Simulated assay, not measured.
Amino acid sequence: MTNDVRAVADPQQPVGPQPAVDSAVEGSAHGRAAGVATGVAACVVGAAIAMGIGRLVPAINPMLIAIVLGALVANLVTVPGWIRPGLDFSAKRLLRVGVALLGLQLMFSDVVGLGWGVIAVVVAIVVLGIAGTMYMGGLLGLSWTQRVLIACGFSICGAAAVAAADGVVDAKEEELLTSVALVVVFGTLMIPAIPLLSHVFGLSERQAGMWAGGSIHEVAQVVAAGGLLGGGALAVATVVKLARVLMLAPVMAYLGARQRRNADGRGKVNSKQPPLVPVFVLGFLGCVALRSSGLLPGVVIEQAKLVQTALLTAAMFALGLGVRVTLLRSVGPRPFVLAALSTVWVAAIALTGVLLVG
């Protein structure tokens, strides 16, 4: 622990190496509270900067800016270990609240309005995308949890899905951070690729929008690509993508049920079992239902969107602070190979569906 911790925990303590004292301070409730508060404050500042840059450059979503900004900070300066509780709180708690509030941006009628053919394509993208990614990851020798994070992130809704899946399967930290970094890299590459390939394949504006919404990882990345395709394509792309986001609920419910079965199978009857359906997923569905009811005025929806963006941006900054070059080097090339294969696989499924029903 650094001298900074001791300054926060007890300003009267003398400066100098005192490992025993530092350890006691770090373990104290006061020291932990200071770490949580300072870590959350750092993420709030990072989110504010990212959102400020986003206002100056509207084409770039603040959540993506936050991940990159956090990664830059992590690799350029030493992040004090004592603020880790605050970073963990932001990356998990704040993110889950943000994911729940994301439901206020979607109405069931929007999804139904796509038509049952498009809905079937969305389900196929998520189910086959996850199944194919899991299979290919197994051939590459990656752990089950690493495959789950990449599969959910690339098939559903990017970093939010990665973190949501981590909340259910409890993956290793390096697996979580690697998956988030891969979503940023490959999803960003898809922004110019989908519009370019749509032109090469001669897709209509609606088909191109469907392909973008069905294949690109992050909601923000879909919006960026949809903007390049045109206004009509952007609307279709956004709704198709949000339909994929809605698939977060059944997928997390399945993973939760699987984890419970595994815990029972190992005889851990007295251990704390993962919930069948995570609370934040229920919150997400509740927000979708609330928005679909038509009871919320437009101003409330707009303010909720701002809060949701701020929470997710703070969480992305916290996740970005864990993305270090040394970490990415240590995991080896296999996760990157799986990310590339998964990107192509999901895009191929989406394009096939577009050509069939679009």
Score class of each variant (00 low, 15 high):
residue 150 I to K: 03
residue 57 V to K: 15
residue 87 L to K: 04
residue 191 I to C: 07
residue 118 V to Q: 14
residue 32 R to H: 09
residue 8 V to N: 12
residue 18 Q to D: 11
residue 172 K to F: 07
residue 327 L to I: 15
residue 332 G to I: 10
residue 179 S to P: 03
residue 309 T to H: 04
residue 177 L to H: 03
residue 253 A to R: 07
residue 15 V to A: 14
residue 86 G to K: 00
residue 91 A to N: 13
residue 356 L to T: 10
residue 125 I to Q: 14
residue 253 A to D: 03
residue 166 D to N: 15
residue 297 P to V: 07
residue 24 A to Y: 11
residue 6 R to T: 08
residue 242 L to P: 14
residue 293 S to R: 11
residue 235 A to E: 15
residue 281 V to R: 01
residue 351 L to C: 01
residue 170 D to E: 09
residue 122 V to T: 11
residue 322 G to M: 15
residue 95 L to S: 04
residue 242 L to I: 13
residue 299 V to T: 09
residue 338 L to R: 03
residue 349 I to Q: 04
residue 109 S to A: 15
residue 314 A to L: 03
residue 129 G to E: 00
residue 252 M to S: 04
residue 10 D to V: 06
residue 330 S to G: 15
residue 102 L to I: 09
residue 134 M to D: 02
residue 242 L to D: 14
residue 255 L to M: 08
residue 97 V to I: 06
residue 331 V to F: 09
residue 312 L to D: 07
residue 133 T to Y: 01
residue 11 P to H: 08
residue 183 V to D: 00
residue 109 S to Q: 14
residue 339 A to G: 02
residue 66 A to T: 02
residue 46 G to P: 06
residue 245 V to P: 15
residue 60 I to D: 02
residue 94 L to H: 04
residue 221 Q to F: 07
residue 96 R to M: 12
residue 72 L to V: 15
residue 61 N to K: 00
residue 213 G to C: 10
residue 42 A to L: 15
residue 210 M to H: 10
residue 357 V to W: 12
residue 22 D to S: 12
residue 149 L to K: 12
residue 241 K to L: 13
residue 205 E to N: 10
residue 184 V to Q: 01
residue 90 S to V: 12
residue 339 A to V: 01
residue 313 T to V: 01
residue 182 L to I: 00
residue 332 G to E: 11
residue 272 K to S: 05
residue 111 V to L: 15
residue 89 F to H: 07
residue 272 K to R: 06
residue 316 M to C: 12
residue 95 L to W: 02
residue 322 G to V: 13
residue 251 V to E: 02
residue 63 M to Y: 05
residue 209 G to F: 13
residue 11 P to I: 09
residue 150 I to S: 02
residue 154 F to S: 15
residue 313 T to D: 06
residue 313 T to A: 05
residue 67 I to R: 03
residue 120 A to N: 14
residue 60 I to S: 08
residue 278 P to I: 02
residue 175 E to W: 03
residue 344 V to Q: 06
residue 205 E to Y: 10
residue 215 S to W: 01
residue 299 V to R: 05
residue 39 G to A: 09
residue 322 G to A: 13
residue 70 G to Q: 01
residue 45 V to P: 04
residue 39 G to N: 06
